[in-house]
């Protein structure tokens, strides 16, 4: 299989459909309607409405990434502990929900979280206080955690199952207790999984416009919504591209982190 040329079709494809399209975003973002160079589209982020949308997006996405990590890490540890022979079965359980359309799944939370919905009925049964988060920022964070949790669990799980039992036993033999073994051995070894999980949750959470649309009841505007509206309603492509460029600064930071921990280019994602 000594044929480097087998990669040629993909290289052409990447040039045509990854690199050139991105150059267009740069072109539109850095020009005005007449095609002259301008930085105005980038500076537009400073308007109060857009700054608040960006800050809101940052707040909600950091929050949901943190919650995802807190939920996913113990989950990945437990899944590792099950010693499932086929790791692919675990992956399968997390990918299976994607076969039901994600817009519908997200909408379904509206019903479940409703004031008189299933969840509040269950809570009332146990005499717990009800939750009323529909159409709030909390509902959006909830939707983000729900949608992106698998992207945090899978990379961490994939890294954890590669840590051999002998590594853990060695730490124990050398006198480390359970807590030390975790913080000095397991946790550092799982860093690549954590980093790729954080990237894979943070970026879609930061840039989503769908979840805020569906669960925020149109009341909560995120930076994704602002950009989407520039393309679909106001048709100001230059401004929309400019804002996308600003957004990409944050994505680039994640990419740098991703590249740093993913030197083989193998990725821990799948």
């Amino acid at each position: 299989m000594g044929k480097k040329s087998l990669a040629a079709p993909y290289i052409v494809w990447m040039a045509g459909f990854i690199v050139i399209p991105l150059l267009f975003v740069f072109y539109y973002g850095l020009t005005d309607k007449s095609g002259a160079f301008t930085l105005e589209n980038l500076a537009a982020i400073a308007s109060p409405e857009k700054v608040s949308a960006l800050l809101r997006s940052l707040k909600l996405s950091v929050l949901s990434t943190a919650i995802c990590l807190l939920l996913a890490y113990p989950l990945a540890m437990i899944l590792k502990g099950l010693h499932v022979k086929k790791g692919s079965f675990v992956v399968f359980l997390f990918i299976l929900p994607m076969w039901m359309n994600f817009l519908l799944r997200t909408m379904a939370w509206q019903t479940l979280l409703d004031r008189n919905g299933v969840i509040n009925n269950v809570l009332a049964f146990f005499h717990l206080p009800g939750i009323n988060i529909i159409n709030t920022q909390a509902a959006i964070v909830f939707g983000m955690v729900y949608n992106f949790l698998p992207f945090m669990v899978l990379p961490i799980y994939n890294v954890l199952i590669k840590i051999g039992d002998d590594t853990v036993e060695a730490a124990r033999d050398l006198g480390a207790d359970g807590v030390q073994t975790f913080f000095r051995v397991i946790f550092p070894l799982s860093m690549p999984g954590i980093v790729s999980g954080i990237t894979m949750v943070f970026v879609p959470a930061l840039t989503t416009f769908v979840i805020s649309d569906l669960l925020g009841g149109g009341m909560v505007l995120l930076i994704g919504n602002v950009i989407e509206q520039e393309f679909t309603f106001t048709a100001n492509w230059n401004l929309g591209s400019g804002l996308s460029l600003v957004l990409m600064v944050f994505i680039l930071i994640s990419m740098v982190l991703f590249a740093k921990y993913d030197k083989d280019g193998e990725g821990a994602a799948v």
């Binding site: 399209p21 991105l22 975003v25 990237t199 970026v203 879609p204 930061l206 840039t207 989503t208 416009f209 994704g224 950009i227 989407e228 393309f231 929309g240 591209s241 996308s244 957004l247 990409m248 994505i251 994640s254 990419m255 991703f258």
Partner: peptide, 9 residues
Amino acid sequence: VNAEIVTGI
């Protein structure tokens, strides 16, 4: 790694 919205646009 890129945002889907940026890829789409």
